[in-house]
Design a protein around this nucleic acid. Structure first.
Length: 398
RNA sequence: AGGGGUGUAGCUCAAUUGGCAGAGCGGAUGAUUCCAAAUCAUCAGGUUGCGGGUUCGAUUCCUGCCGCCCCUGCCA
């Protein structure tokens, strides 16, 4: 069935909760990579070209194409959702949306130790979660990376194009290598190269990224430039699509929300668990007593209000900020209110997730549909690449 | 492949001729706070990498295997 328990509730919820597309800025043509702060300036320009695409889409490569990936390393949490998934859904709901491909990047997940059955199970489960969040396979291409072997092929070719020095500068590799000294594999190091292949295989022009991925995307751009210079113009330079969403800290106050730290709220978390976790989440350490003025700008709870209350009720968000500063609103009440918002917005997702999990065959079918769509593009790109680099055409000589 | 090192609580590491396996951090609970943080108190947590052997008794000594790190090589 191609129209399964489509969580319309979740979809509306996600859409309503979502900030507008204008919040994400597409820096379409600027060569130097700058982090945009002001948003929306280019919205018109983008929509105009996007509209042009749509009419051409049938027979021509779209001017804009979005690619992004997510690793199947467990159930996605609030950080994944607010940082990436919600943007994906927003994009697809935009009237002038670009062509978009989203991959569950299981080859990337291989850089950490993971049991084969686990990898397969999590891949399927991630599919369920993404659909539950409202991603619509009829509007975007959703597929599994390893189903399109060209990723690996292009990855090798790119590893002969990328500069060692550039990779050695990757801070994320340094961090991960430091954290996981027992398994510093080469894949961890060349990760950004495979990522460049992921993106450029589809000649994607826009990549929704979090701040931590900007450096990797810059490498993709560099790889595209180097390839083009050496083998001829082939790839566009992908642009970052930075979301304005404030960085989410972990519930324990640490810099990042990550599963390994256990400071997350999973998307399918039970309401009681959500409430319990938020209840003991770290707030503003400077606000010692009930009547002390708060500092919303440093409070992670307020950041979360910005994500869950703000988009639906900006006035309420402003009131919370004001009342926190004036101590009219206490942290306990503030957390309760947040928990209500989170629970009510996550509930449809949780239910849809459960519904999808109950129909693994449909999930597999959907991934297969995605594979076909992705493979068609990937194969075309690779034909071009093989010809350019000189690994085709031997037999034809006479 | 050979040589050297290493493997003990979730993490970093202790354990004196072979004699009840501990500490710090982290975690949980309680006190205190509007909550959280901080502070104080309490608690949990282990097949000492796996298998043999010596011994009354092995984290410790011997042996085989496994993982990881470093060095020197070999093959392509």
């Amino acid at each position: 069935m191609s129209e399964p328990a489509q969580p319309s509730g979740a979809r509306t919820a996600a859409r309503a909760a979502a900030t507008t597309v204008g919040d994400c800025e597409a820096r379409a043509r600027d060569r130097p990579l700058k982090l945009p702060s002001a948003c929306g300036r280019r919205a018109k320009l983008c929509s105009r070209s996007a509209r042009r695409n749509r009419t051409d889409r049938r027979d021509r490569m779209p001017r804009h194409r979005i690619f992004s990936g997510i690793q199947p390393t467990g159930e996605p949490h609030l950080g994944n959702y607010l940082g990436a998934i919600r943007q994906w859904v927003e994009q697809q709901e935009a009237p002038d949306r670009a062509d978009a491909l989203y991959a569950i990047v299981d080859y990337h997940a291989l850089t950490i130790e993971i049991e084969p059955e686990q990898l397969a199970a999590w891949t399927l489960d991630m599919t369920a979660s993404l659909l539950a969040c409202g991603l619509d396979p009829q509007k975007v291409t959703l597929f599994r990376q390893s189903d399109v072997p060209e990723h690996a092929e292009l990855g090798w070719i790119f590893s002969c194009v990328a500069a060692l020095g550039d990779l050695q500068r990757m801070t994320q590799f340094k961090d991960k290598a430091e954290q996981n000294k027992d398994n510093i594999n080469v894949g961890l190091f060349t990760y950004p190269v495979l990522q460049a292949a992921d993106i450029l295989l589809y000649k994607a022009t826009q990549v929704p990224v979090g701040e931590d991925q900007v450096q990797h995307l810059e490498l993709s751009r560099e790889v595209a430039r180097r390839f083009n210079r050496r083998f001829g113009e082939t790839f566009p330079e992908p642009q970052p699509l930075l979301s304005k969403v404030a960085r989410l800290r972990g519930l324990d106050g640490s810099a990042k929300m990550s599963k390994s730290k256990g400071n997350t709220v999973a998307l399918g978390e039970a309401p009681e668990t959500i409430r319990a976790k938020l209840k003991v989440a770290v707030t503003d350490p400077a606000r010692l007593r009930r009547n002390d003025p708060g500092h919303p700008e440093v409070c992670n709870i307020f950041t979360l209000h910005g994500c869950f209350t703000g988009p639906r009720d900006p006035e309420r968000l402003a009131a919370i900020e004001r009342d926190c500063r004036s101590a009219a609103l206490g942290c306990v009440d503030c957390k309760k209110e947040l928990a209500d918002r989170v629970v009510e917005q996550l509930t449809p997702i949780r239910e849809a997730q459960a519904a999808w999990r109950a129909r693994p065959d449909d999930l597999r079918d959907l991934l297969e549909v995605g594979r076909k769509k992705a493979a068609a593009i990937a194969e075309a790109t690779m034909e071009e690449v093989r010809a350019r680099i000189g690994v085709r055409g031997l037999a034809k000589r006479r």
